[in-house]
Design a binder for these strands. Structure first.
Lengths: 342, 342
DNA sequence: CTGTTAGCGCGTTCAA
DNA sequence: TTGAACGCGCTAACAG
């Protein structure tokens, strides 16, 4: 089937291609009747403009890109929804792209910027360190959402924004809460990778809290899940291994709620009661933390606020009403039913 | 900053643009040394080819699109992962696009087909009915994954494929399992929308099972969640309303696991024991069903098989080794801890 | 093996 | 208000 193009439409209407183009792009300088006739033919023929060709030419195009590391991660769902709503309100198109675990999100952004006419780029999740070299090549404002403020050592903080919680601090808060309950042998489920990441910071917060409270860090209580930190299966397996190891502990702090849910199940299977025998804490404050049995004690990230602020910020920067900023939201310790005094 | 193009690279290397193009696209008819030199310059300059321009020209481009209704839904995660792996193995690029709830997935596909050079389109989720008119405009093979076989009344079944479970049948299976346990007052959590959908079919299966077993369908036991069927909150609220209504029932069947998790929490809050006081069943067989407490009785969809078969099928159709097919996988009733004899 | 050149489909001049 | 012509950046065909 021969692809139908703008030329074909122009022919059928007996007008020039530019007139069709004008009709398509809601230009004002066109006779309403001509436009109406053209639109009718377009509908009849089912003609759809080729976006690649448009992107090639177009200069304006209000479009911002959201790059999500692991878009299938439910963690970002509420953030994405808000971002979409805010973009729509501003009449901006939103390109949502997921980034594979093995891909470099900045590379993807670079490519996207060439392909579309972007006005701004938002990164959700992903690495907390990036090469200043690459980052500099991005010609439009960049905001990191949920990723802390030390993205690049070399790059001036004036050249990018961040909106997030202070992961290390919040993690320390959670650990100190557990310590406050009287726990001394606190195990942690973290991630094995040694790439700099949010997760790394949470682990650091844990270590800091212990040390600040005169509790010796026991390597045997630090357990690393295999790759994915948003897998219940991983939480289950790693917790089971911890239990089977015979290591003594009275609390388990998981650096994600999803891991914690797996942990709860592992304890249930082992006949270990939560919180009577062991306390379990999560991190993130995802939906599941409010609906699992028992409810999880967790550290809620204000994702809605983060997302809303991110959008506001990027629009402000685009409109040059503001420079780059680094906004830190406080997390909220939510005490559920999964932790108790020792 | 002046965008750097292929012409610029050609100049700097002292070669023609087509040579650069050849280097870029891994053509064989190019001197390895020339290629090496070009690639070096490309790296130095940070040049990135413009995808829009490429799409405009390229004729081959092995690319298939996956359109997911509600990509943030964890339900599709395992399917997407498999699809990506299979595509990579075949050296196909995979374009993943999420479709908003209010968008028509076929419209999005139409647009995408114009923009990229697609070889095939896969729909995951979404409506189970589509206008034959629009569907016909898609020039490449279309496969619906997880959506049953009656996509369009007018369209020949030879013009599209489906890979799914028989939602009505499996739903009936689950309902009959509950009936077999001795339950007669079986409530159901379904979706309110009256658009034809998978969910609708599950509700029909429930009704069929009751009627086939001489149990009168009680409208008061059919509860509709507000919009999203993958929201624990919705499951919780709707179950709570059901409990508060004082309606008597001994089992609750939720048409998604996520709803069921919310239901479990609602019962826990009401001091109603599962499964001693009431049985709870889900549908889908998502991860959470294996990790919640108690484990859910659910109807597992073989998502991995569905996804793998979908990919195999679409490649076969593209290679003209096969025509369109309608593959139905059996679901698997997984008996958890959430259901018991009445 | 390489360079030149003709479009891909569209938006945007510019002149009418 | 409209149409003709140009070129966005690239790939592919062709000629060398």
């Amino acid at each position: 089937m021969a692809e139908i193009t703008i030329v074909e439409i122009a022919k059928r209407c007996g007008v020039g291609v530019s007139t069709v183009s004008r009709a398509l792009n809601n230009h004002t300088d066109i006779n309403p009747e001509t436009k109406k006739r053209i639109m009718e033919v377009i509908k009849e023929t089912g003609y759809i403009p080729n976006n690649s060709a448009r992107n090639l030419k177009r200069t304006d195009a209000k479009c911002i890109a959201v790059l999500v590391k692991g878009i299938t991660n439910p963690f970002f769902t509420p953030m994405i929804e808000i971002a979409e709503a805010e973009a729509e309100e501003r009449k901006y198109a939103l390109v949502l792209r997921h980034v594979e675990a093995y891909e470099d999100e900045v590379d993807v952004a670079l490519e996207l910027e060439k392909e579309k006419r972007l006005r701004g780029i938002i990164f959700m999740g992903g690495s907390s360190k990036h090469s200043s070299h690459k980052l500099k090549q991005l010609n439009v404002p960049v905001v990191f959402a949920t990723v802390g403020s030390d993205i690049s050592e070399k790059l001036s903080k004036n050249s990018y924004s961040t909106v997030s919680v202070d992961d290390k601090l919040e993690s320390r808060k959670m650990t100190e809460y557990l310590i406050g309950l009287g726990h001394k042998r606190i195990a942690i489920l973290s991630e094995g990778s040694d790439k700099p990441s949010i997760v790394k910071q949470r682990l650091e917060g844990y270590v800091e809290a212990l040390e600040a409270n005169g509790i010796k860090v026991d390597e045997k209580l630090i357990r690393y899940v295999d790759r994915r930190i948003y897998s219940m299966e991983n939480g289950y397996k790693t917790t089971k291994a911890l239990i089977d190891s015979g290591e003594e502990f009275t609390a388990l702090y998981c650096i994600s709620d999803v891991l914690a849910v797996g942990a709860l199940r592992a304890f249930a299977d082992a006949g270990i009661r939560v919180p009577e025998d062991v306390s379990v804490a999560g991190f993130d404050g995802q939906d599941i933390s409010r609906f699992c049995v028992p409810r999880l004690t967790t550290l809620r990230q204000p994702l809605e606020d983060i997302s809303r602020e991110t959008m506001k910020l990027i629009f402000n920067i685009i409109d040059e009403e503001s420079g780059h900023k680094h906004i830190v939201f406080p997390g909220e310790l939510i005490v559920g039913e999964s932790t108790a005094k020792r």
